[in-house]
């Protein structure tokens, strides 16, 4: 390890601890909000927005996504698209149901 790299990592250490504390705080907030018993759509929105922020912090800082090259982002976006398709796939059964196709 050369000295430059050594310095590079130690510069980021503070950032790692900040993200760690932020993740714990956001967890506390999610749990706290769940005690408010918001209406279901609002509760789902709040919980998933907080989860997305947390996931973003983990991916950006712990997984060093923030300093990655463009090609990594391209692969990530492609994965996200396929993931969305996979999630929506079960909806096809609902469409069939409404269209009255056989076997539904």
């Amino acid at each position: 390890m050369d000295a430059a790299q050594h310095e590079d990592v130690s510069k980021h250490m503070g950032q790692y601890y900040v993200v760690f504390v932020a993740l714990l705080c956001l967890t506390a907030i999610t749990v706290g909000v769940s005690y408010l018993h918001l209406a279901r759509p609002a509760a789902i929105t709040v919980a998933l927005v907080i989860a997305t922020v947390k996931a973003g912090l983990v991916a950006a800082v712990f997984m060093h996504l923030i300093s990655e090259r463009k090609v990594i982002y391209a692969v990530l976006i492609l994965t996200a698209v396929f993931f969305a398709v996979l999630l929506l796939l079960p909806n096809l059964t609902t469409f069939e149901h409404h269209s009255g196709l056989p076997g539904t």
């Binding site: 967890t27 999610t30 749990v31 769940s34 279901r40 509760a43 789902i44 919980a47 998933l48 907080i50 989860a51 947390k54 996931a55 983990v58 991916a59 712990f62």
Partner: peptide, 15 residues
Amino acid sequence: VDLVWIFLFPSLYLL
């Protein structure tokens, strides 16, 4: 694995 748990936790335990 941590990131997946971040989504599983609110979805399965809090909502």
